[in-house]
Protein backbone atom coordinates (compact mmCIF):
# COMPACT_ATOMS: atom_id res chain seq x y z
CA UNK A 1 0.00 0.00 0.00
CA UNK A 2 1.44 3.38 -0.82
CA UNK A 3 0.36 6.90 -0.27
CA UNK A 4 0.76 9.92 -2.49
CA UNK A 5 4.41 10.40 -1.59
CA UNK A 6 5.23 6.89 -2.74
CA UNK A 7 6.15 5.85 0.78
CA UNK A 8 5.19 2.51 2.12
CA UNK A 9 2.41 2.87 4.63
CA UNK A 10 1.50 0.08 7.00
CA UNK A 11 -2.02 -1.25 6.82
CA UNK A 12 -4.45 -0.79 9.69
CA UNK A 13 -3.61 -4.19 11.04
CA UNK A 14 0.12 -3.62 10.80
CA UNK A 15 -0.32 -0.42 12.78
CA UNK A 16 -1.81 -2.39 15.62
CA UNK A 17 -5.39 -1.64 14.77
CA UNK A 18 -7.90 -4.29 15.71
CA UNK A 19 -11.54 -3.51 14.97
CA UNK A 20 -12.77 -5.85 17.69
CA UNK A 21 -10.81 -4.32 20.52
CA UNK A 22 -10.00 -0.81 19.34
CA UNK A 23 -11.73 1.62 21.69
CA UNK A 24 -12.98 3.82 18.93
CA UNK A 25 -12.07 2.25 15.68
CA UNK A 26 -10.13 5.47 15.35
CA UNK A 27 -7.53 5.28 12.63
CA UNK A 28 -5.84 8.05 10.82
CA UNK A 29 -3.23 8.18 8.13
CA UNK A 30 -0.97 11.14 7.67
CA UNK A 31 -0.70 14.44 9.36
CA UNK A 32 -2.46 16.39 6.67
CA UNK A 33 -6.03 16.19 5.53
CA UNK A 34 -5.42 16.10 1.83
CA UNK A 35 -3.79 13.45 -0.33
CA UNK A 36 -2.06 14.04 -3.62
CA UNK A 37 -0.47 17.29 -2.57
CA UNK A 38 3.06 16.07 -3.13
CA UNK A 39 3.82 16.03 0.55
CA UNK A 40 7.52 15.35 0.92
CA UNK A 41 7.75 15.99 4.64
CA UNK A 42 7.28 12.35 5.54
CA UNK A 43 4.40 13.16 7.84
CA UNK A 44 2.04 11.78 5.20
CA UNK A 45 3.14 8.33 6.23
CA UNK A 46 2.19 8.68 9.87
CA UNK A 47 -0.39 6.24 11.13
CA UNK A 48 -2.12 7.01 14.37
CA UNK A 49 -4.72 5.11 16.31
CA UNK A 50 -7.03 7.51 18.08
CA UNK A 51 -8.37 7.04 21.58
CA UNK A 52 -12.07 6.44 22.08
CA UNK A 53 -14.87 8.91 22.46
CA UNK A 54 -18.11 9.66 20.74
CA UNK A 55 -17.48 7.06 18.15
CA UNK A 56 -16.29 4.42 20.57
CA UNK A 57 -17.66 1.03 19.74
CA UNK A 58 -17.65 -0.40 23.21
CA UNK A 59 -20.49 -0.16 25.66
CA UNK A 60 -20.17 1.34 29.11
CA UNK A 61 -20.74 -1.18 31.90
CA UNK A 62 -23.24 -0.66 34.68
CA UNK A 63 -23.33 1.21 36.95
CA UNK A 64 -23.29 4.27 34.72
CA UNK A 65 -23.21 6.69 37.63
CA UNK A 66 -25.29 9.76 38.37
CA UNK A 67 -28.90 9.63 37.31
CA UNK A 68 -28.09 7.48 34.29
CA UNK A 69 -28.85 4.24 36.11
CA UNK A 70 -32.21 5.55 37.31
CA UNK A 71 -33.13 6.62 33.78
CA UNK A 72 -32.06 3.30 32.32
CA UNK A 73 -33.97 1.30 34.93
CA UNK A 74 -37.08 3.41 34.42
CA UNK A 75 -36.77 2.97 30.69
CA UNK A 76 -36.46 -0.81 31.03
CA UNK A 77 -39.50 -0.84 33.29
CA UNK A 78 -41.49 1.28 30.87
CA UNK A 79 -40.81 -0.66 27.69
CA UNK A 80 -39.93 -4.08 29.06
CA UNK A 81 -36.56 -5.81 29.16
CA UNK A 82 -37.08 -7.59 25.84
CA UNK A 83 -37.87 -4.41 23.93
CA UNK A 84 -35.03 -2.58 25.64
CA UNK A 85 -32.54 -5.26 24.72
CA UNK A 86 -33.73 -5.25 21.13
CA UNK A 87 -33.85 -1.45 20.88
CA UNK A 88 -30.73 -0.31 22.67
CA UNK A 89 -27.66 -1.62 20.92
CA UNK A 90 -25.22 -0.12 23.37
CA UNK A 91 -24.95 2.62 25.95
CA UNK A 92 -22.02 4.99 26.20
CA UNK A 93 -21.28 7.29 29.10
CA UNK A 94 -18.69 9.85 28.18
CA UNK A 95 -17.85 13.25 29.70
CA UNK A 96 -20.86 13.12 31.97
CA UNK A 97 -23.32 12.52 29.15
CA UNK A 98 -25.15 9.33 28.31
CA UNK A 99 -25.83 8.12 24.80
CA UNK A 100 -28.21 5.32 23.90
CA UNK A 101 -27.53 3.85 20.50
CA UNK A 102 -30.98 2.83 19.29
CA UNK A 103 -32.14 0.56 16.48
CA UNK A 104 -34.45 2.59 14.28
CA UNK A 105 -37.27 0.01 14.33
CA UNK A 106 -37.71 0.60 18.04
CA UNK A 107 -37.05 4.33 18.16
CA UNK A 108 -40.68 5.44 18.45
CA UNK A 109 -41.54 2.99 21.24
CA UNK A 110 -38.58 4.22 23.21
CA UNK A 111 -39.21 7.90 22.59
CA UNK A 112 -42.89 7.59 23.48
CA UNK A 113 -41.98 5.95 26.78
CA UNK A 114 -39.29 8.52 27.46
CA UNK A 115 -41.80 11.33 27.05
CA UNK A 116 -44.80 9.80 28.79
CA UNK A 117 -43.52 7.60 31.60
CA UNK A 118 -43.83 9.25 34.99
CA UNK A 119 -40.36 8.23 36.04
CA UNK A 120 -38.79 9.56 32.84
CA UNK A 121 -40.74 12.64 31.72
CA UNK A 122 -38.50 13.91 28.94
CA UNK A 123 -40.90 16.68 28.02
CA UNK A 124 -38.58 18.62 25.78
CA UNK A 125 -36.85 17.46 22.65
CA UNK A 126 -34.01 19.97 22.67
CA UNK A 127 -32.46 19.11 19.38
CA UNK A 128 -32.37 16.67 16.50
CA UNK A 129 -29.37 16.78 14.25
CA UNK A 130 -27.26 14.64 12.01
CA UNK A 131 -23.62 13.66 11.97
CA UNK A 132 -21.89 12.07 9.01
CA UNK A 133 -19.11 9.80 10.25
CA UNK A 134 -17.68 9.04 6.82
CA UNK A 135 -14.05 7.89 7.35
CA UNK A 136 -13.80 9.95 10.46
CA UNK A 137 -11.47 7.45 11.91
CA UNK A 138 -14.61 6.33 13.66
CA UNK A 139 -17.26 3.95 12.40
CA UNK A 140 -16.59 3.82 8.71
CA UNK A 141 -19.28 3.36 6.14
CA UNK A 142 -19.67 -0.36 6.39
CA UNK A 143 -23.04 -2.08 6.81
CA UNK A 144 -22.45 -2.82 10.49
CA UNK A 145 -21.08 0.67 11.12
CA UNK A 146 -23.39 3.02 9.24
CA UNK A 147 -22.08 6.49 8.50
CA UNK A 148 -25.14 8.69 9.02
CA UNK A 149 -26.17 9.27 12.61
CA UNK A 150 -29.28 11.04 13.82
CA UNK A 151 -28.75 12.49 17.28
CA UNK A 152 -31.64 13.35 19.60
CA UNK A 153 -31.11 15.41 22.72
CA UNK A 154 -33.94 14.98 25.19
CA UNK A 155 -34.46 17.08 28.30
CA UNK A 156 -36.51 16.25 31.34
CA UNK A 157 -37.51 19.51 32.93
CA UNK A 158 -39.18 17.70 35.82
CA UNK A 159 -36.05 15.83 36.87
CA UNK A 160 -33.52 18.16 35.23
CA UNK A 161 -31.92 15.40 33.25
CA UNK A 162 -30.56 15.17 29.77
CA UNK A 163 -29.95 12.13 27.61
CA UNK A 164 -28.93 11.54 24.05
CA UNK A 165 -30.31 9.00 21.60
CA UNK A 166 -28.40 8.09 18.50
CA UNK A 167 -29.70 6.21 15.48
CA UNK A 168 -27.30 5.14 12.75
CA UNK A 169 -28.29 4.43 9.15
CA UNK A 170 -26.43 3.85 5.93
CA UNK A 171 -26.48 6.39 3.13
CA UNK A 172 -28.11 3.83 0.86
CA UNK A 173 -30.99 3.22 3.23
CA UNK A 174 -31.19 6.55 5.05
CA UNK A 175 -34.62 6.11 6.61
CA UNK A 176 -35.51 6.90 10.20
CA UNK A 177 -39.03 7.08 11.64
CA UNK A 178 -40.12 10.62 12.38
CA UNK A 179 -40.69 11.66 15.99
CA UNK A 180 -42.84 14.65 15.02
CA UNK A 181 -45.94 12.80 16.23
CA UNK A 182 -44.40 12.62 19.70
CA UNK A 183 -42.39 15.84 19.74
CA UNK A 184 -43.96 18.41 17.37
CA UNK A 185 -40.85 20.56 17.81
CA UNK A 186 -38.85 17.98 15.85
CA UNK A 187 -40.60 19.20 12.69
CA UNK A 188 -38.04 21.77 11.65
CA UNK A 189 -35.13 19.84 13.14
CA UNK A 190 -35.94 16.84 10.98
CA UNK A 191 -36.44 19.01 7.92
CA UNK A 192 -33.02 20.51 8.51
CA UNK A 193 -31.46 17.08 8.97
CA UNK A 194 -33.08 15.92 5.72
CA UNK A 195 -31.89 19.07 3.99
CA UNK A 196 -28.31 18.82 5.23
CA UNK A 197 -27.76 15.05 5.39
CA UNK A 198 -30.40 13.49 3.16
CA UNK A 199 -31.85 11.40 5.95
CA UNK A 200 -35.50 10.61 5.25
CA UNK A 201 -37.78 10.79 8.25
CA UNK A 202 -40.65 8.44 7.49
CA UNK A 203 -43.96 9.79 8.68
CA UNK A 204 -42.91 13.43 8.76
CA UNK A 205 -45.89 15.61 7.72
CA UNK A 206 -44.00 17.66 5.14
CA UNK A 207 -40.38 16.70 4.72
CA UNK A 208 -39.11 19.51 2.49
CA UNK A 209 -35.91 21.48 2.39
CA UNK A 210 -35.76 24.23 4.93
CA UNK A 211 -32.47 26.11 4.68
CA UNK A 212 -31.30 25.32 1.16
CA UNK A 213 -33.35 26.37 -1.88
CA UNK A 214 -36.09 23.93 -2.89
CA UNK A 215 -34.33 22.93 -6.11
CA UNK A 216 -30.93 22.32 -4.55
CA UNK A 217 -29.02 19.20 -5.49
CA UNK A 218 -27.36 17.15 -2.80
CA UNK A 219 -27.09 17.45 0.94
CA UNK A 220 -24.41 19.94 1.88
CA UNK A 221 -23.33 18.73 5.29
CA UNK A 222 -22.47 15.26 4.17
CA UNK A 223 -18.76 14.84 4.42
CA UNK A 224 -18.40 13.87 0.77
CA UNK A 225 -20.15 17.04 -0.36
CA UNK A 226 -17.52 19.54 -1.47
CA UNK A 227 -17.22 22.81 0.37
CA UNK A 228 -17.20 24.72 -2.87
CA UNK A 229 -14.87 27.54 -3.72
CA UNK A 230 -12.51 28.01 -6.63
CA UNK A 231 -8.73 28.07 -6.80
CA UNK A 232 -7.44 31.60 -6.55
CA UNK A 233 -4.44 32.77 -8.49
CA UNK A 234 -2.31 35.29 -6.67
CA UNK A 235 1.21 36.40 -7.51
CA UNK A 236 1.60 33.52 -9.96
CA UNK A 237 0.73 30.97 -7.29
CA UNK A 238 -2.54 29.11 -7.12
CA UNK A 239 -4.25 28.77 -3.78
CA UNK A 240 -6.69 25.87 -3.77
CA UNK A 241 -10.13 26.14 -2.14
CA UNK A 242 -10.18 25.44 1.61
CA UNK A 243 -11.33 21.82 1.49
CA UNK A 244 -8.61 20.76 -0.93
CA UNK A 245 -5.87 22.78 0.71
CA UNK A 246 -3.10 20.95 2.50
CA UNK A 247 -3.77 21.33 6.16
CA UNK A 248 -3.21 19.76 9.53
CA UNK A 249 -5.59 17.16 10.80
Amino acid sequence: MSNDGGEVVPSREEAGYDAATAPSGGFRKGSFGVTGSGDTSGFGGLVRVEPGGAVALHSTDRPFGGYFDEVTDALIEAVGQATYDAAVQRVLVDRGEITYFVAREHLLVLVQALRDDDALRFELCSSVSGVDYLDSGGPAATPDRPRLHVVYHLTSMTYRRRIRLEVAVTAEDAHVPSVVGIYPTADWHERETWDMFGIVFDGHPALTRILMPDDWDGHPQRKDYPLGGVPVEYHDATIPPPDTRRSYR
Binding site: G26, A54, D94, S126, S127, V131, G137, H153, R162, R249
Partner: peptide, 28 residues
Protein backbone atom coordinates in the same frame (compact mmCIF):
# COMPACT_ATOMS: atom_id res chain seq x y z
CA UNK B 1 -12.54 12.36 20.17
CA UNK B 2 -16.03 12.47 21.58
CA UNK B 3 -19.25 14.42 21.50
CA UNK B 4 -20.88 16.81 23.94
CA UNK B 5 -24.04 18.84 24.11
CA UNK B 6 -23.74 22.07 26.06
CA UNK B 7 -26.88 24.14 26.58
CA UNK B 8 -26.79 27.70 27.90
CA UNK B 9 -29.50 30.25 28.51
CA UNK B 10 -29.25 32.81 25.74
CA UNK B 11 -31.60 35.81 25.66
CA UNK B 12 -33.92 33.75 23.45
CA UNK B 13 -33.84 30.44 25.25
CA UNK B 14 -31.86 27.25 25.11
CA UNK B 15 -28.79 27.70 22.96
CA UNK B 16 -27.30 24.24 22.61
CA UNK B 17 -23.98 23.31 21.09
CA UNK B 18 -23.64 19.73 19.92
CA UNK B 19 -19.97 19.42 19.10
CA UNK B 20 -18.32 16.27 17.80
CA UNK B 21 -14.58 15.78 17.65
CA UNK B 22 -12.76 13.00 15.87
CA UNK B 23 -9.57 13.79 17.68
CA UNK B 24 -8.18 16.22 15.14
CA UNK B 25 -7.40 19.91 15.06
CA UNK B 26 -10.80 20.73 13.60
CA UNK B 27 -14.35 20.10 14.72
CA UNK B 28 -15.90 17.06 13.05
Amino acid sequence: AGQVYVPIESPRGELGYHVVSDGSTRPW
